[in-house]
Design a protein around this nucleic acid. Structure first.
Lengths: 293, 293
DNA sequence: TCCTCATATAAATAAATTTTATCACAGCCC
DNA sequence: GGGCTGTGATAAAATTTATTTATATGAGGA
């Protein structure tokens, strides 16, 4: 069976018009009619119901079923192409979100240099969500990602590396700085400076506020951790960050949050399960997985 | 691109011999050579390394990568065929393991009759493991499955219905029958009558014994719950069953097990995420999911 | 009623795949 | 070494499959 027929079919399901599909692929209309006929013969089922009134054609159940698989096959083929293209370059496409890049990755970076892998590394920044999609569609070979719930997606192998709690962050002299722990219910009126949507932090923050039944007063959002920390330090508001984002030099105090069964910031190595591991990639994955502790 | 070329290629990776692959598909040898050449052109990469000494050919990294995807596409295509074939019959292929069938399903069965769905139902028995595979490869549309850990497999939608604890089961007059709870460590010398491997029970039993650090004395295994219960009743040994497998009429006593964070017997509705839901299947799935309290 | 839009069909053509026939090369046995 | 065998490559011919061209059909609207 020809995958082109599947492509014609998928487009037909989307456009529901033979002529337009033909135009889309730069072929003539009978080509689409015949391609559909081939598929209907192959699967021995009507896939598109041609209504007597040619107003609008409908997709049969079998057609919708096949559409799903046609999509899956197209994805699979595209993935094969990207993967094999990347193979040629002998480079590792590595996804690394800024927070992990700044605060966690340096531990590993030193070893990377000693092994001499830095040359082959193409590092890609961005939010954990974006990077996850990129691993799935083959744009990245491997990534270090932050997540708060368990991270599970079909076809991905996830190795958990480290966890850190989320904290309330205040400047050193702040009235709350002496507290041993804080409950969100007690912070209802506090101004908050937080990380942008798209960060794992945003989702975790929502978990905490919703669980506590609090509507937080967010005075500033940024996609830059450095900015957030500066604002906290200057007293614009208190912060919500994972422990690892805070260093001694920041002049900030990280206070544990009082809430049972709270999510933690988790760092994992993620790659496609079916990804064929080159020696290079194996070395790098091992390095990520074992070098830390 | 023709999927036949992928089939030739996959077989070539497995047999590593052009002539044998040709024979396998009933075509001539140049066909395989040319099919491979087409793929190598399409992906612009060498897939098979033809050694100068024709002893044994090796698969390149790109070849191994493509092999994975060729397999996936073949599976996808096969699944499309089975699904569309099944659609023709207007029947629901329903997987139901014996324990759930005997003790849990009757609650739902009555409603099934009133809705008039019984005629369209093709029920398939077997262990939860087997049935899970059958859902995955399209042999079944939907199944009620028992599991103990969280059940997650790529491409499956799992709706949890009910949970029940595992219990130690003894006949009414047994010396242990008065106990409020039992620890496995205290049962090291007891003879056990248990369900066969392949049942969720076997895995859970292993969890309990391993966690307790006990090597149980299993005197009898059966794949029939009725037999197991009869043997327990006649004093052959004590049993390990989920609470729902025990009814008042059995004359058996189910005693809670003292162990923290113990797994529970969970019943879930499972179907393929990509499965197109016919009205019939939707009705049935809703019935399974909601009919129970 | 006629025109337009949308799909189907048949024959002709073009493109692709497969076969036939043959070559090249390495390993092996005598 | 010389011939035999197993294995794959190549070129041309044959065959199969896909696409186009040209035309038909049928519904809906002006």
């Amino acid at each position: 069976m020809n995958t082109r027929d599947l492509a014609y079919f998928a487009q037909l399901v989307e456009l529901r018009n033979f002529t337009q599909v033909a135009a889309h692929f730069g072929v003539t209309q009978p080509t689409i009619t015949l391609a559909l006929k081939r598929l209907e013969d192959e699967f021995d089922a009507r896939l598109i119901h041609r209504d007597t009134s040619h107003t609008r054609l409908t997709v049969t159940t079998a057609g919708r079923q096949l559409y799903q698989h046609a999509q899956a096959i197209t994805r699979e083929l595209a993935l094969a192409h990207t993967e094999i293209d990347h193979l040629r370059e002998e480079k590792i496409r590595f996804g690394l979100p800024p927070i992990i890049g700044n605060y966690y990755f340096p531990k590993i970076a030193a070893k990377l240099v000693t092994v001499g892998l830095t040359e082959q590394l193409m590092t890609q920044g961005g939010g954990s969500g974006t990077l996850l999609t990129m691993v799935q569609n083959g744009s990245l070979d491997i990534a270090l990602l932050g997540h708060s719930g368990p991270l599970s997606a079909p076809g991905l192998t996830v190795t958990q590396l480290a966890q850190a709690p989320f904290r309330i962050v205040v400047p050193a002299g702040h009235p709350l700085a002496q507290q041993k722990s804080l409950a969100f219910t007690a912070l209802a009126d506090q101004p908050f400076v937080v990380l942008d949507e798209g960060y794992v932090h945003a989702r975790a923050f929502r978990w905490f506020t919703q669980t506590a039944g609090v509507r937080p007063n967010i005075v500033y959002r940024s996609n830059d951790v450095g900015v957030v920390k500066q604002m906290i330090k200057q007293g614009v508001g208190i912060g919500f960050l994972t422990q690892i984002a805070i260093t001694a030099a920041d002049g900030l105090v990280a206070i544990p949050i009082a809430q049972t069964d709270q999510p933690r910031f988790t760092i994992s190595v993620v790659h496609r399960t079916e990804q064929v591991m080159t020696p290079l990639l194996t070395t790098f994955a091992d390095l990520l997985t074992h070098s830390q502790k």
